[in-house]
Simulated assay, not measured.
Amino acid sequence: MAKQVQTLNTGPNYKQIYHDFIAAKCPDKKESVKAFLSKDSLSLSDVLKINQIIFFDGSSENQKFKSYDKQAIFEILQYQKKHQLNNRQLAAHFKLSRNTVSKWKRIFLI
């Protein structure tokens, strides 16, 4: 019998996803995101900046179904503390719902 190797699910590999997407859909933006994709790992702010560069049309429809892991949520909440933003300002900055920010604070900061 062959042994099965279990791999840990560490989340999406954003570098590979963006690399493949840019190569297939918009090779003209490769130079714009080259600095981000050369990093060993991408932070939440890197992912958001790359999204802004690639999908700059400003349409909220593209950002309708976003999901965040715990690390990303904590990074967003730390950003709020660092920059002394209220929930409305944070929600506007990251294009979130104020209710989402309130829910995260209620769940993770209690």
Rank of each mutant, 00 (worst) to 15 (best):
H93R: 13
A35E: 15
K29S: 10
N99S: 15
R88D: 15
I107R: 13
R88W: 05
D69M: 05
F108D: 05
K39L: 12
A35V: 11
I22W: 01
N86H: 11
V33G: 05
I53Q: 03
K66H: 02
T7A: 04
F55C: 06
K70W: 00
V33C: 12
N9H: 06
N86S: 11
Y68Q: 03
Q71N: 13
A92R: 12
K95E: 14
F55P: 09
S67I: 09
N51H: 08
Y79V: 04
L44S: 04
Q71L: 13
S45I: 04
K49M: 06
L42T: 09
L8E: 06
C26I: 10
T100M: 13
S59F: 00
K25R: 10
R98N: 15
Y18Q: 10
L37I: 12
E75Q: 14
W104G: 03
P12E: 11
D28V: 02
I73T: 10
M1C: 06
Y14E: 05
Y14G: 01
H93C: 08
D20G: 06
L44P: 01
T10W: 00
M1A: 10
G58M: 06
K39S: 12
S67H: 09
F36E: 10
Q63R: 12
I107C: 01
Q6P: 01
G58K: 07
I107D: 08
L42N: 07
Y68L: 05
V5E: 05
L48A: 05
T100L: 15
Q52Y: 00
N9Q: 08
S43H: 01
I107M: 04
D40K: 15
P27W: 00
E31C: 05
K34Y: 00
L109H: 09
G58Q: 07
T10C: 06
Q80V: 11
I17P: 09
I17Q: 13
N99T: 14
I50M: 08
A92T: 09
Q6K: 03
S97G: 15
F65N: 15
F21A: 13
E31Q: 13
Q16S: 14
V47C: 09
K30C: 10
R106E: 08
L85T: 06
A24M: 08
D40P: 12
A72G: 09
L37H: 11
N99Q: 14
K30A: 15
K66N: 08
S38M: 10
R88P: 08
M1S: 12
I53A: 04
N51V: 02
Q89T: 12
I54D: 12
I17A: 12
S43G: 06
S97W: 02
G58I: 03
R106I: 02
